[in-house]
């Protein structure tokens, strides 16, 4: 189905659902505002920055992320249970959903296109080092890799390693620097492995 065909079909569905009183334009507008402005990786970045600045919060986050993030009161469904896994020089974690595209919406928003495409979903559970290289991440052979395939309702987020040169920055400054891809596990912040 071409993009144009898909758009026309989506609009046909929209107009029928509106006629039948099952959907409204304002609801669609709300969904757009919500996921374009409020529910996105800036939420996960706040969690990461807090974990870097507050070791007790970090311990709680790694022990039980679902409870630890309650204080942020993020909106956005799709997270029945959140597990946060920590990247270190010795252990690198990355996240995928090979069966569909499960993703921790409440902390990272909607997934990027590549996360949903067959190339990433098929290859990252088989050759994560090769896939990471395509993202510009070269890990030392001694770094163990763990790939988390989100095959049930548990959602995973990566706690990236804090670059040494970011020591001394405050939580707000750090939150602005943490990227979506680092929380999926396909980016090292400021090349932090080197």
């Amino acid at each position: 189905m071409s993009e144009t065909d898909a758009r026309l079909r989506a609009e046909a569905l929209e107009s029928l659902l509106i006629e039948k009183g099952l959907l409204s334009v304002s609801q669609i507008d709300d969904v757009i505002t919500r996921y374009n402005e409020r529910v996105g990786p800036m939420n996960g970045a706040r969690v990461v920055a807090k974990a870097w600045c507050d070791s007790r919060f970090k311990a709680r986050l790694l022990d039980d992320a679902t409870s630890a993030i309650e204080e942020f009161a993020f909106e956005g469904g799709e997270v029945d249970k959140l597990v946060v896994v920590e990247n270190t020089a010795d252990q690198h974690n990355l996240v995928v959903c090979t069966l569909c595209s499960c993703y921790p919406w409440a902390v990272l928003g909607l997934p990027p296109k590549w996360y949903k495409d067959p190339a990433y979903r098929s290859r990252v559970v088989r050759e994560p080092r090769a896939v990471l290289a395509e993202f510009g991440v070269q890990l030392p052979a001694a770094t163990a890799i763990r790939v988390w395939d989100s095959s049930a309702e548990i959602r995973y987020m990566v706690l990236p390693e804090q670059p040494k040169q970011w020591q001394g920055k405050d939580e707000g400054e750090l939150a602005a620097l943490v990227t979506r891809d680092s929380m999926i596990g396909v980016e090292l912040l400021a090349g932090s492995a080197e």
């Binding site: 090979t98 069966l99 928003g109 495409d117 067959p118 979903r121 098929s122 979506r180």
Partner: peptide, 26 residues
Amino acid sequence: LGGQDGFGRVEIDENPAGFAERWHAV
């Protein structure tokens, strides 16, 4: 799809947060 061959390189898009098109939100 896990473990299958033949899908080539990951095409990394500069995809902004949220919906790229209104019809996606529809």
